[in-house]
Design a binder for these strands. Structure first.
Lengths: 202, 202, 202, 202
DNA sequence: AATGAATGAGGCTTCATTCAT
DNA sequence: TATGAATGAAGCCTCATTCAT
């Protein structure tokens, strides 16, 4: 009945959607959400403006999609790898490894952090986006807390928040200051701190 | 023609300018830079749109001015108070006091943080703003470093960056999560950590 | 290749076309011609947008078709019923019956009236639609005139126009004011007037 | 203080507003509300699109303004003249005169009628416009009712609705059919009917 | 016959900025 | 110094229509 086969269409849709999301992530992260126009994204995707609305109901819906995409596909990577390793590594080493992953991701997936942080400041007017953002942070806390609990760290809930804040703060400074920021030295000291933390608990 | 003396005029000018900056800060922080129009600011100041351009060349120039104002007048408050106290308090107590000031400021001057952080993400396109922002952070690091050096903390330069990151990370989470974030518990643990840090140095 | 016989195909085509017209009438009347999109109609018909153009060359052609359909199939109902009754009823009773039919139709087929009237105002730009509309009115006059002539009413041509105007005016007010309009009282008085009219002619 | 004097500005505003409203009335009536774009109106006024929004918050607000303007400035003319004459004419002659005024207005102010009628069909989605429209009709009924009551016509409330419907129906047909509609003959018969109506009440 | 991805023109609206006064 | 009318570019979004399959 259908001319272009159904699977073909579905594939086209999926590909296009991902293409738009990736491009939007790129541009949102680079210039910020408000400075990036639908036109720009469409042009970067080499499609018409109108087609954007075949895939996303509005600019805000696109943003939401990008955030969810990034959260599930990108942020999860760290935790997934940790989950894999968790079978072989001790909690202590796992935490250390997790932090190292964070530093790598921060540099590699700078886009994600930049977008997340910049958005997190201006989402009061966008309730759906705000709830996605808080979801990201809360999940982050919870997973870290589980890791710390496994490592028998004292007061893991609050400690998780402190470590998360530490990491996000570093990311923030790194994003703003770029290579002027001595990331390696900071990382080294942080790992050293964490080491002591675990020691003091054993 | 001009019964008002020159000095009066200059004073009025300065006051107006500050009024505009304060209003802009308020609105930029509340709704974001892009969502705040010159019209809104003018209306909130009870002056005409045209007059705005008598004081600031452009919206971006106003933003720059706001940031500078905020950096010199607002952010300095913490350090100034610390400088005052530095004559009577030990470095250890001074650091503790500084952190407590930070937490107070974070809650009281949330506007400033929100604006600063959100802007700091999107300034690649605004070089002047970017350089103001990096200036803010660098100054922040340097002053903290001096404090730590006085307290004989090891490796004060990097430690200063870590503490600053810790604080900014907490601010970031607090801004995003609001009262869902257990600020008091975090603060308590952080102070405890700092305490140990200083202890290990004595 | 085609196991379906030709006649079946034609039947399907005709059914589809009517289905589209009916759906379009519904939606045009509900939201207005301009606020109803081809997409909406297609979705309501559970067919694709593309297929719409297999049946109608353009949105305007669809409108024209809808109007013609409505004129021939819907408006005629009143007259057809009258024609049926005309064999048994006296002209006087026939007129009375016709008016009662009109009131019923106005309430039951409000869609038709709403669409017809609203379109009739804006057809200067749509000559084909305009000619369809004028055709509807002229036919209406002529049939009413015949009825009046049979009833020996004086000056039936102009009287037909007056009665038609009376009815359309009532419909207009009823459509705008809805149930705030005292339709029953108006109907009663109108029938009474008509009664007198016929009386004065006997 | 003010550069261009306040009165000047007010005058400019008033003139522009009226100019826009008049132009909009013209175009809305000619092509319908939905087919008339803000762009077109602006162009016809020889001003920028942007300026339109200095005077009206939205296209719908402009429409509302046009309707109110037309209702108070145009529709009132008939009643005002009647009020003037009411001191010298008998109610019977007054009604006759009113109807003659209506016919004149219908031809002279065709725009108003066309707009009103065409809008009245499609305002279900625009509550503010709908309430303006119903207000127009209700006022119309009430004033006519008062006139009839003064003329001691039986059941003036319903009779007012019937006459109003009669007039609006004639207007409707005249608008659609234009000069094919025998307006003079219809008018003559209508006046004759009204004459009888009053007679039968004396 | 049928689909729906894709286009592109056009619609409404906002807003930084200019300028006559 | 001060106003606010005016501009024009740009933004988001809708939709009739086309076309490859």
């Amino acid at each position: 009945m259908s001319p272009r086969k159904k699977e073909d269409n579905e594939q086209i849709r999926t590909q296009r959607q991902q293409q738009i999301e990736l491009t939007a992530l790129e541009l949102f992260a680079l210039h910020g959400y408000h400075r990036t126009s639908i036109s720009e994204i469409a042009k970067a995707c080499d499609i018409s403006k109108g087609l954007m609305y075949n895939y996303f109901d509005s600019k805000e819906a696109l943003l939401e999609s990008v955030l969810l995409f990034v959260m599930t596909d990108a942020a999860d990577d760290i935790f997934n790898e940790l989950v894999q390793k968790s079978k072989t590594l001790s909690p202590k080493k796992l935490l250390r490894h997790g932090i190292e992953l964070f530093f790598t991701a921060m540099q590699v997936q700078a886009k994600f952090w930049k977008l997340s942080i910049s958005l997190s400041m201006q989402v009061a007017d966008m309730p759906r986006i705000h709830s996605v953002m808080t979801g990201i942070f809360q999940k982050y806390f919870v997973e870290l807390e589980a890791l710390l609990k496994a490592g028998k760290v004292e007061n893991p809930a609050i400690r998780a928040r402190l470590i998360a804040a530490q990491l996000d703060g570093i990311a923030l400074h790194y994003i703003v200051l770029g290579d002027d920021y001595n990331l390696q030295a900071v990382k080294k000291m942080l790992l050293n701190d964490i080491e002591k933390l675990s020691n003091s608990d054993t």
